[in-house]
Design a protein around this nucleic acid. Structure first.
Lengths: 141, 141
DNA sequence: CGTCTATGGTCTCACTTAATTACCTTGTGT
DNA sequence: ACACAAGGTAATTAAGTGAGACCATAGACG
């Protein structure tokens, strides 16, 4: 045993591995680990949808809600604030008669669109295969 | 108002927008939407860490646990099974004296490493800026 | 013989987050 | 006065996560 554990499946991804595994084996994972930090942020239910919406340009609160019909006001507020806190989006209040608030991507927020896009592309290319795999798995049980 | 909502922040991401917004505005989001499907899967707390671990080669159950020290057996089992169900990893049982089980990426599983890598790269490049933004945000409140 | 260790799990229970529903505040048109 | 909209908060409920006991098997130890 223990002989097959060190083989490299895809040599091209060595750099990836370094990034994924930048922690001491056998020690608790660093809670500040940037990878987990960002994936925990954008991995929630709504962040990517909001970022994708704001990628088309600035939106007011209600415009984001119209663009993502099945989000509750509560989660929209909270997710927008989390994204603002992380510097990915900016919030601007206009003192109009009913005050309006505009949300837009910051320069930092724009930079996440590229890696996000490759993930989205992968999802589109792979979701048929994934659904097939699920079907096969469920039938085998 | 309503004049600033259609402006495009980054024209290069129009394709992204198409992918993000492949649903009817005003209608409930398609629960089969491939983007949400995959992001809900790999966006959980452990999937990416497991994929990153298996990117270095096949691992046995306990080897994955050693590589990710702060995962509980329960979540390891569950996440491995979810990934197996989606066809991203394969599970092979060897009938040794205490049966050993090997997990490895499938060809489909290997294909997600590339988009995942760009996200990880982004996280490493941006986490300093994000932490600064958080600090500034928290001090302003 | 009885106990100990090891693998790869499962099961139950408690706890921490995430998410939905309902409500509040301010202003505006009728 | 009344309904309505924007933006947000409070209280409630659902889901995700974790700690630890337990299981089946088999070989080594004493």
């Amino acid at each position: 045993m223990g002989q097959g554990e060190a083989k490299v499946t895809a040599p091209a991804f060595d750099a990836t591995v370094q990034l994924f595994a930048d922690r001491q084996p056998g020690q608790p994972v660093d809670p500040q680990c940037p990878v987990r930090d960002v994936l925990d942020r954008i991995g929630d239910k709504w962040s990517t949808l909001i970022l994708g919406t704001l990628a088309t340009g600035p939106h007011r609160f209600s415009a984001v809600q119209r663009a993502i019909p099945d989000i509750s006001k509560r989660m929209l507020t909270q997710t927008l604030r989390d994204l603002e806190r992380d510097g990915l989006i900016a919030r601007t209040v206009f003192p109009t008669k009913p005050p309006s608030v505009e949300y837009r991507l910051t320069p930092l927020g724009v930079t996440i669109l590229e890696p996000l896009t490759s993930l989205v592309r992968w999802a589109n290319q792979s979701h048929a295969a994934i659904r097939e795999a699920r079907l096969a798995f469920d039938q085998a049980s």
